[in-house]
Design a protein around this nucleic acid. Structure first.
Length: 452
RNA sequence: GGCGCGAUGGCAGAAUGGCUAUGUAGGGGACUGCAAAUCCCCGUAUUCCGGUUCGAUUCCGGAUCGUGCCUCCA
């Protein structure tokens, strides 16, 4: 398979370091609030990659961290008066639930930052020992000029960084580009004892420490959002390589594009974000997943509720084909179609993969047979689609609106009216159901219904 | 100011040095008591200006517009 490597800015043939165990690290959430859709995109994208890798290789170790110590969490705790643990535990649970709703498989290992403080301190000590970091006033800073090839991922020189710097340079820094590995905590702030005084980790060190602990010094794939390239991933590389005798951190770096709303970047600071939770209230997770994968992962994706509705309609069509062929058997031995695999193996071309699913759906409608149905299901299931029972998908769920009993009673009443050739009454009932969001499909022997 | 990305039909969105995706919307037809679903048929596209080439939407240069990053961020 081919994957685009941010490091080389080219598609490369993927060759794992150890084909018996492919290792992948993806930057996970800082748990202080509900996940927004921008957080969900990388989860769904790398879940798709994870599923593909699992198909190609006997074992994949997928690590996605939970950042449970951070100034944003501290600020939230101060604001709400809750304990940090309470916030991180609750938010982590919500994150797990939301991502499961998006049909994302859980990672193999989900390390928490607070459980790796000793690993971070060990890494920091090594960096100081090797002359790449220095302690000053309770801070420990990584000295960027100590690494000659700093900036390879983002392709920035140190001079450019300083020239463009928007922030004031802290007086204790030896160099303007130096970044924090460890910072002091006041008595009322969360902190851990260390040789540099009581404090807490900087933003980047946790990923270096946890990746080393769970995947080793060098692993296959490191993923995350585009905005992590600089500074986060650049600094992870600096820390890890300088601590590990210049061993590369990851062979392949993958970054998903942004989610936009009306072509503006969706972000917390702009306030133009949707939480996954809010969207799950108006559409099934599978529809959200489809919407998130409907553009290639490296392209920007402009999200709207309209796009989400379209995704739901598309799935109605796919599930409709399954419901119409419910008597056709599924054969698990039928392979995923080659062109479908080829699309995904070409740097996760999900739009192309969906085009092939559309084609299979259309074939199934025309020639309903086990071979076609099985090809469709094996393809769709591979990347987390069409895993539900078609009938239950069509019936959906609705807390308000008509109950299934009411719907079935109306359908029976309409059937009686039709038998009596009272078409005006039959149409009136159908209109009543339509107004309640129920669409009927008359078949030869019975009437099917679905929620729109 | 520095670094980068993008521009494809009404909309969404792939691909490609010659054949033109897919979906959706729209038009016509089949089926249906009428619908729905499904099937068949049909329009509409590669931002602009140069260059390379037998041939460019694709490669190269420039312009315009949009957008991201430059120590909060997926």
């Amino acid at each position: 398979m081919q994957l685009y490597n941010t490091l080389t800015r080219e598609k490369e043939i993927f060759a794992p370091m150890d084909a018996r165990n492919v290792r992948m690290y993806v930057c996970g959430p800082t748990v202080y609030d509900f996940a927004h859709l921008g957080n969900a995109r990388p989860v769904v994208v790398f879940d798709t990659l994870y599923r593909l890798l699992k198909l190609h290789y006997p074992k994949v170790t997928y690590v996605r961290n939970i950042t449970d110590v951070d100034d944003k969490i501290m600020a939230k705790a101060k604001e709400s008066g809750e304990a940090i643990d309470t916030i991180t535990t609750r938010t982590t649970k919500a994150y797990h639930d939301d991502m499961a709703s998006l049909l994302a498989l859980p990672p193999d290992i989900e390390p928490r930052a607070t459980a790796h403080i000793p690993h971070m301190l060990a890494l920091i000590a090594k960096l100081i020992e090797k002359g790449h970091a220095y302690a000053v006033d309770g801070h420990v800073l990584f000295n960027v000029p100590s690494m000659p090839n700093y900036g390879e991922l983002s392709r920035r020189s140190r001079d450019e960084l300083i020239a463009g710097a928007r922030v004031e340079v802290a007086p204790y820094k030896k160099d303007a580009a130096d970044f924090v590995l460890w910072k002091p905590s006041t008595a009322d702030q969360v902190g851990w004892d260390s040789p540099y005084g009581r404090g807490r980790p900087g933003w980047h060190i946790e990923c270096s420490a946890m990746a080393k602990e769970h995947l080793g010094e060098t692993f296959d794939i490191h993923g995350g959002g585009l905005d992590l390239i600089f500074p986060h991933h650049e600094n992870e590389i600096a820390q890890s390589r300088c601590a590990h005798d210049d061993a590369p951190l990851a062979k392949l770096w993958m970054h998903n594009g942004f989610l936009t709303i009306n072509n503006d970047k969706m972000s917390k600071s702009l306030g133009n974000f949707f939480t996954v939770r809010d969207l799950l209230a108006i559409a099934p997770g599978e529809a959200l997943r489809l919407a998130l994968l409907s553009a290639h992962y490296r392209q920007p994706l402009d999200f709207s509720e309209e796009a989400l509705k379209k995704a739901k309609q598309t799935l109605d069509g796919w599930y409709g084909a399954l419901r119409n062929t419910k008597d056709i058997a599924f054969d698990a031995n039928v392979a995923v179609p080659e062109n479908f695999m080829a699309a995904l193996d070409d740097d996760l071309n999900t739009p192309q993969a969906f085009a092939i699913i559309h084609d299979l759906v259309s074939q199934l409608n025309k020639t309903p047979d086990t071979k076609t149905k099985s090809a469709l299901l094996s393809a769709a299931n591979l990347i987390g689609f069409l895993t539900q029972d078609a009938e239950s998908w069509m019936r959906g769920s609705s807390s308000d609106g008509l109950s299934e009993e009411q719907i079935l009673a109306l359908i029976t009443a309409r059937k009686d009216a039709k038998a009596a050739k009272n078409f005006a009454e039959a149409d009136r009932i159908r209109k009543e159901l339509l107004d309640a969001g129920i669409v009927l499909e008359d078949k030869a022997n019975d009437t099917l219904w679905r929620r729109v």
